[in-house]
Write a protein that binds this DNA or RNA. Sequence first.
DNA 1: TTACGATCCGGACCGAGGTCCGTTTAATGT
DNA 2: ACATTAAACGGACCTCGGTCCGGATCGTAA
Lengths: 228, 228
Amino acid sequence: MLYAGFMSTAPPPFPTPQEPVALPELLQLETTPEADEPCLRADAARNRARLLEAAGRLVAERGADAVTMEAVAAAACVGKGTVFRRFGDRTGLLTALLDHSEKKFQAAFLSGPPPLGPGAPPAERLRAFGRGMLRRSVDELELQLAAEPGANRRFVVPARRVLRHHVAMLLRQAVPDADCELLSHTLMGQLDPALIHHLTKQCGIPLARLEEAWTDLVDRLTGTESAP
Amino acid sequence: MLYAGFMSTAPPPFPTPQEPVALPELLQLETTPEADEPCLRADAARNRARLLEAAGRLVAERGADAVTMEAVAAAACVGKGTVFRRFGDRTGLLTALLDHSEKKFQAAFLSGPPPLGPGAPPAERLRAFGRGMLRRSVDELELQLAAEPGANRRFVVPARRVLRHHVAMLLRQAVPDADCELLSHTLMGQLDPALIHHLTKQCGIPLARLEEAWTDLVDRLTGTESAP
DNA sequence: TTACGATCCGGACCGAGGTCCGTTTAATGT
DNA sequence: ACATTAAACGGACCTCGGTCCGGATCGTAA
């Protein structure tokens, strides 16, 4: 099931990785069919569903700011502690809300049709990747922003690692002579939800210009030329 | 006095800018000799100094995490409200602590000697800029991380705007045919304190590699070749 | 059915950021 | 020196994220 979204029951928010994640681990997780919600007790599973439903309703009705842990707990008729045990922290809850779209996108670039999926040349896949990220961001901007963890953890979020790792792989194919690990961070920076929000909502820059900038960046870095 | 650091007395944290800051405003601020601490009342100025001193001591002795607003207030023998009135919020206080080094760096790339300052070709100034930022970051990483505001405000922090604006200017000279506003965001992303922290502290990547990646990025984008 | 251990639940509790407002005080004018 | 007023002060107070632990509940095995 792709990446397994976010921890569904693990209290340690992240395994304190000291070095770049190993590829095998990634693939293993991707092939586990039901890695999330692993044998959750009946009441626990029921409360988890209740909580997600309540949180989603709160976001829809009153915006992401209204998604207070206490409010969610109350709306789900559940104790506050339950929310934290299930999702770890606020970021975990919000991330879980984004999980579905996240997995869909992962499926698209991992095994979907070209140019996003395998089959197209790497540079073109990169361009499609950026377009996809940008489009996805504008839909869920508020949630993605609210789900952003503190500065310390920004780069440790599993979902982001998967995305960055994919970019790094494409880069290795397209620009073998570069430091693709670091370069992938640079590219991902351009797709950061906070930046997208700033540029589109606060600066009024149209999405099309962001897409152009992305493809132009890919062009320059890979030395290729995209079709107009 | 360069940029005027962070607000020194203004309760509104930032003027809600809807579009890229205008260049004239920047220059005006840069030429005001004592724009910060504008006509602060005697007791206010004294308390401000006390607070900065106390906060600095706390950082040095017990780390940035120990810099609680209440702790700083207590250490400075001052009420909690005073801290907030003076610095707006925690981010403001931490930013004020970084102000000195910030202004020094601004002076260096605005009017210092080449290659960082004016006089060198833009691509080379860019390379020097990245080196300077990286070096400065490793010194003050903890503070810079702690001073990072929430996701919404990351790109509105005045100091960051000045830096980014400078990069954009250099880019316009070096790569006139690109969208330099957006490209500058990309470059600045590579110098983000949170990223630096992640790469150096959590991934163990040596600083030299980050510097190489930076110069390589500049090379690729500007089409120039740096000296080995 | 019952007993038992692991898991989960709930809400009291804590710390920290941020707000508010009645009080104090520094600057200025008379 | 004294009155006036705008600014600064301080700490009580609020909210919210996060922790803790005694008690309830589920799954299981006898």
